[in-house]
Deep mutational scan, measured.
Amino acid sequence: QTVQFNGLEYHFPNPEEAEKFAKKVAKELGGEVRVKDGRWQID
Rank of each mutant, 00 (worst) to 15 (best):
Q1Y: 15
Q1V: 11
Q1D: 09
Q1M: 12
Q1W: 15
Q1H: 14
Q1C: 15
Q1N: 14
Q1S: 14
Q1L: 12
Q1T: 14
Q1R: 13
Q1K: 11
T2F: 10
T2G: 02
T2H: 05
T2D: 03
T2S: 09
T2W: 14
T2L: 09
T2I: 15
T2E: 03
T2A: 06
T2K: 06
T2P: 01
V3E: 00
V3S: 00
V3M: 03
V3H: 01
V3G: 01
V3C: 06
V3P: 00
V3L: 04
Q4D: 07
Q4P: 02
Q4M: 14
Q4V: 15
Q4R: 12
Q4T: 14
Q4S: 14
Q4H: 12
Q4F: 15
F5D: 01
F5L: 09
F5W: 12
F5Y: 10
F5G: 01
F5C: 11
N6T: 02
N6H: 10
N6P: 00
N6M: 13
N6R: 12
N6K: 09
N6D: 10
N6I: 04
N6Q: 09
N6L: 12
N6V: 03
G7K: 04
G7H: 06
G7N: 06
G7Y: 04
G7W: 04
G7A: 04
G7T: 03
G7V: 02
G7I: 02
G7M: 05
L8S: 08
L8H: 12
L8T: 10
L8R: 14
L8D: 06
L8E: 09
L8G: 06
L8M: 13
L8V: 13
L8W: 12
L8Q: 13
L8C: 15
E9N: 09
E9D: 08
E9G: 03
E9F: 13
E9K: 08
E9M: 13
E9P: 03
E9I: 15
E9Y: 12
Y10C: 14
Y10Q: 02
Y10E: 01
Y10K: 03
Y10A: 02
H11K: 08
H11W: 13
H11R: 10
H11S: 08
H11T: 09
H11P: 03
H11M: 08
H11A: 07
H11N: 07
H11Y: 12
H11F: 12
F12A: 01
F12N: 00
F12R: 01
F12L: 03
F12P: 00
F12G: 00
F12K: 00
F12S: 00
F12M: 02
P13E: 11
P13R: 11
P13Q: 11
P13F: 08
P13S: 12
N14Y: 04
N14M: 03
N14I: 04
N14D: 08
N14H: 05
N14T: 14
N14F: 05
N14R: 05
N14L: 05
N14S: 13
N14Q: 04
P15L: 07
P15Y: 13
P15A: 13
P15R: 11
P15C: 14
P15H: 09
P15M: 10
E16N: 07
E16M: 10
E16V: 09
E16A: 10
E16Q: 10
E16S: 09
E16T: 10
E16F: 11
E16W: 13
E16C: 14
E17R: 04
E17F: 04
A18F: 02
A18P: 00
A18D: 00
A18Y: 02
A18G: 01
A18K: 01
A18W: 02
A18R: 01
A18S: 01
A18Q: 01
A18V: 01
E19P: 00
E19H: 07
E19Q: 07
E19F: 11
E19N: 04
E19C: 15
E19L: 11
E19D: 04
E19W: 12
E19V: 05
E19T: 03
E19A: 08
K20F: 09
K20R: 12
K20H: 08
K20I: 10
K20N: 08
K20L: 12
K20T: 09
K20E: 10
K20S: 10
K20D: 07
K20W: 11
F21I: 01
F21A: 01
F21G: 00
F21S: 00
F21P: 00
F21H: 00
F21N: 00
F21K: 00
F21V: 01
F21Y: 07
A22V: 06
A22G: 01
A22D: 00
A22K: 03
A22H: 01
A22E: 00
A22M: 05
A22N: 01
K23G: 04
K23I: 11
K23R: 14
K23C: 12
K23Y: 14
K24R: 12
K24E: 09
K24P: 00
K24A: 12
K24F: 10
K24W: 13
K24M: 12
K24S: 09
V25D: 00
V25C: 15
V25W: 13
V25P: 00
V25S: 03
V25E: 01
V25F: 06
V25T: 06
V25Y: 06
A26V: 06
A26G: 05
A26D: 01
A26W: 05
A26L: 06
A26Q: 06
A26R: 03
A26Y: 04
A26M: 06
A26H: 04
K27I: 09
K27Q: 11
K27D: 09
K27E: 11
K27Y: 11
K27N: 09
K27L: 12
K27M: 12
K27A: 13
K27G: 08
E28I: 12
E28D: 09
E28S: 08
E28W: 14
E28A: 12
E28P: 03
E28N: 07
E28G: 05
L29R: 06
L29E: 05
L29G: 05
L29N: 08
L29M: 09
L29S: 10
L29T: 13
L29A: 06
L29C: 15
L29Q: 07
G30N: 09
G30P: 03
G30L: 05
G30M: 06
G30W: 05
G30S: 06
G30A: 06
G30V: 03
G30R: 07
G31W: 12
G31D: 03
G31C: 15
G31I: 13
G31R: 09
G31N: 04
G31K: 08
G31H: 08
G31P: 01
G31Y: 13
G31S: 07
G31T: 09
E32Q: 12
E32D: 08
E32Y: 14
E32M: 11
E32N: 11
E32C: 15
E32K: 11
E32R: 13
E32S: 13
E32H: 12
V33M: 07
V33D: 02
V33R: 01
V33N: 02
V33T: 06
V33S: 04
V33H: 03
V33G: 02
V33F: 08
V33W: 08
R34Y: 14
R34S: 13
R34N: 08
R34A: 08
R34D: 05
R34L: 09
R34E: 06
R34G: 05
R34C: 15
R34K: 11
R34W: 12
R34H: 12
R34P: 02
V35R: 07
V35D: 04
V35Y: 15
V35A: 07
V35H: 11
V35M: 14
V35K: 07
V35I: 13
V35W: 15
V35F: 15
V35S: 06
V35N: 08
V35C: 15
V35L: 15
K36V: 14
K36G: 05
K36H: 11
K36D: 06
K36A: 09
K36F: 07
K36P: 03
K36I: 14
K36W: 06
D37W: 02
D37A: 05
D37S: 05
D37V: 02
D37R: 04
D37E: 07
D37H: 06
D37F: 05
D37Q: 05
D37M: 05
D37K: 05
D37N: 12
G38L: 03
G38T: 03
G38F: 03
G38S: 05
G38Y: 02
G38C: 13
G38P: 02
G38D: 05
G38I: 02
R39M: 13
R39V: 15
R39I: 15
R39D: 04
R39F: 12
R39C: 14
R39T: 10
R39A: 09
W40L: 07
W40S: 02
W40F: 07
W40C: 05
W40T: 03
W40K: 01
W40P: 02
W40V: 03
W40I: 06
W40N: 02
Q41A: 07
Q41F: 15
Q41V: 15
Q41H: 13
Q41S: 10
Q41Y: 15
Q41D: 07
Q41L: 14
Q41C: 14
I42F: 05
I42G: 03
I42D: 02
I42T: 03
I42M: 03
I42C: 08
I42H: 03
I42R: 02
I42V: 10
I42Y: 03
I42A: 03
I42N: 02
D43I: 15
D43A: 12
D43T: 14
D43E: 12
D43M: 14
D43G: 08
D43V: 15
D43F: 15
D43S: 13
